[in-house]
């Protein structure tokens, strides 16, 4: 082609459609393109499961806080400074030796952004959304988790109105640990209920690796 430099190849249709949305909304004064980049930066770099891990670690070390968290999660989470879109109405469900909780959004991908960030890809996938309801133990196995048959598994469906967060059980061998150290044990998956927190041994291994 002799005109290679005279044009730019248009991107995929969907990218053009997003540019269309953005430019039309900006012209109408409905969005501020500068603020868009700020929002992207926040969701890409600043909001993530580390916030949720702080909530969990505090609940592990402060019984009064745990009580507040289980009775009014939205307010207790806000105490730590975490609130905002998709965190307006929170419920925290506690794992115990008898009960394991896990979270799904069967309709789309409702997820507590202020505490966990944006959901991982699999959380948004059709197989997870449908199968977790039909066969939660089977789904857990795919995450490498097998629970004793005696343990009850409860699946919670997050929605537009309210979102769930799992309070995992505190790992054994962490007595006397400071909250700041416990934070490093709390994984995203453990707060969705498809994983467990790291053990103290995991942490030592990581430090040695």
């Amino acid at each position: 082609m002799s005109h290679d430099h005279d044009h730019t190849d248009p991107p995929a249709d969907i990218e053009l459609r997003v540019k269309a949305l953005e430019s039309v909304l900006a012209e109408k004064g409905l969005i501020d393109t500068g603020a868009l980049d700020e929002l992207i930066d926040i969701y890409e770099n600043k909001i993530g499961p580390r916030n949720g891990a702080r909530v969990v670690a505090k609940a592990w070390t402060d019984p009064d806080y745990k009580q507040r968290l289980l009775s009014d999660a939205t307010a207790a989470i806000k105490e730590l400074g975490f609130s905002g879109v998709q965190g307006e109405d929170m419920v925290v469900v506690e794992n115990t030796p008898d009960v394991h909780n896990m979270i799904v959004c069967t309709l789309c991908s409702c997820y507590p952004w202020p505490t966990l960030g944006l959901p991982p890809a699999w959380f948004k996938s059709a197989p997870y959304r449908s199968r977790v309801v039909i066969d939660p133990r089977g789904v857990l196995k795919e995450f490498g988790i097998s629970l004793s048959d005696e343990k009850e598994v409860r699946v919670w469906d997050s929605s537009a109105e309210l979102r769930y967060l799992v309070l995992p059980e505190r790992p054994a061998g962490t007595d006397g640990w400071h909250e700041d150290r416990l934070v490093d044990l709390v994984t995203r998956d453990s707060m969705i209920g498809v994983g467990f927190p790291k053990s103290s041994a995991d942490l030592h291994q990581q430090a040695g690796a």
Binding site: V18, L36, L39, Y43
Partner: peptide
Amino acid sequence: RTFDHPWQAHAFSLTVQL
């Protein structure tokens, strides 16, 4: 990373800003 492509990030943040 949270998004695979910049257009995904833009579609997301447009919605959140509105």
